[in-house]
C-alpha cells in the first residue's frame, strides 16, 4: 500500500459569488502519474491553484504527505516539495531564460543546489542552454513550455503538477512534452497532469479523474477510463 502524497478531500471553491468547485476529491500516491481530465471550464486549473495555495478554498481539505496544507501559505509550499507548471507557462517575459530558471530555485534548500540543478535542466532541455541569455518572452511556445517545466524542476519538487503542458503546441512538440513527463516520472517525481488531450494523458498516466462542472464524475485506472463508453463518446469522439 503506497502512502498518499497528495490527498484532496471534498474541495469547494468560489470566485466571488460564483462557486466553481463542488467537492472535488482525489489522491495521488507516491511515485504515481495521475491525470486530471475534463473539458474547458470544468475546474481543473482552479483545483491546481487551490492545491498550490494561490486561491484559498471555501471548504474541504488538502493534505500533502498527511499534513494539512490549508494553514500553509502558498509561498511555503515550494519548500515542501510542491511545484506547479501553470497553464499558459506564466514565465517572467522580461527576465532571461537563465534568470527564470535561477529564480525557480528561490527556496533556501533549492538555492544551495541551484548550479547543479541548472546543469540538469540544461541537459534535459539543450535548447534552453542555447537560449539561456535570451528574454523568456522571446522564446517559441515549445521553448517557453520547456522553460516553465525547467523552472518548476529547479525547486526539486516531489510532486510536480502540470496544467495542460501540451496546450497550443505543434504535434511533434506535444509528443516531446509527454516524453518529458515520462522521463521525470522515471527520475522519481510524482506527477499530477492536467490535460484535455485524453488519449495521450491516459497513455502516460496510471490512473485518472474526470472532472465536470466542478466535481469528479469518473475515476479509475487509465485502461478502465479508456474503455468507458461515456468517455469514448464525450471526450474521444468515438
Amino acid at each position: 500500500m503506497n502512502a498518499a502524497m497528495l490527498e484532496v478531500r471534498d474541495l469547494s471553491l468560489a470566485y466571488g459569488d460564483v462557486q466553481v468547485l463542488f467537492g472535488v476529491s482525489l489522491r495521488v500516491d507516491e511515485g504515481e502519474i495521475v491525470t486530471l481530465l475534463g473539458s474547458n471550464g470544468a475546474g481543473k486549473t482552479t483545483t491546481l491553484r487551490a492545491i498550490s495555495g494561490l486561491r484559498p478554498p471555501r471548504g474541504g481539505e488538502v493534505l500533502f504527505s498527511g499534513q494539512s496544507l490549508l494553514a500553509v501559505p502558498a509561498s511555503k509550499r515550494a519548500e515542501m516539495g510542491i511545484a506547479l507548471v501553470p497553464e499558459g507557462r506564466e514565465l517572467w517575459p522580461l527576465l532571461t531564460v537563465r534568470e527564470n530558471l535561477e529564480l525557480g530555485a528561490y527556496t533556501r534548500s533549492a538555492r544551495a543546489r541551484s548550479a547543479a540543478n541548472l546543469e540538469k535542466v540544461f541537459r534535459l532541455f539543450p535548447r534552453l542552454r542555447e537560449r539561456h541569455a535570451q528574454m523568456a518572452g522571446s522564446l517559441s511556445g515549445g521553448e517557453q513550455q520547456m522553460c516553465a517545466i525547467g523552472r518548476a524542476l529547479m525547486s526539486e519538487p516531489r510532486l510536480l503538477m502540470l496544467d495542460e503542458p501540451s496546450l497550443g503546441l505543434a504535434p511533434i512538440l506535444v509528443d516531446q512534452v509527454f516524453d518529458i513527463v515520462r522521463t521525470l516520472h522515471q527520475q522519481g517525481i510524482t506527477i499530477l497532469l492536467v490535460e484535455q488531450n485524453l488519449q495521450k494523458a491516459l497513455e502516460v498516466a496510471r490512473r485518472g479523474y474526470v472532472i465536470e462542472t466542478g466535481s469528479v464524475k469518473l475515476s479509475g485506472t487509465s485502461a478502465d477510463l479508456l474503455a468507458d463508453p461515456a468517455i469514448r463518446s464525450a471526450y474521444l469522439g468515438l
Binding site: S75, E79, E90, W92, P93, R151, A152
Partner: peptide, 11 residues
Amino acid sequence: QNADSCTLVGV
C-alpha cells in the same frame, strides 16, 4: 512581471 509565478517558486 508575474506575481503568482513568484509565489509558486517560494517568493
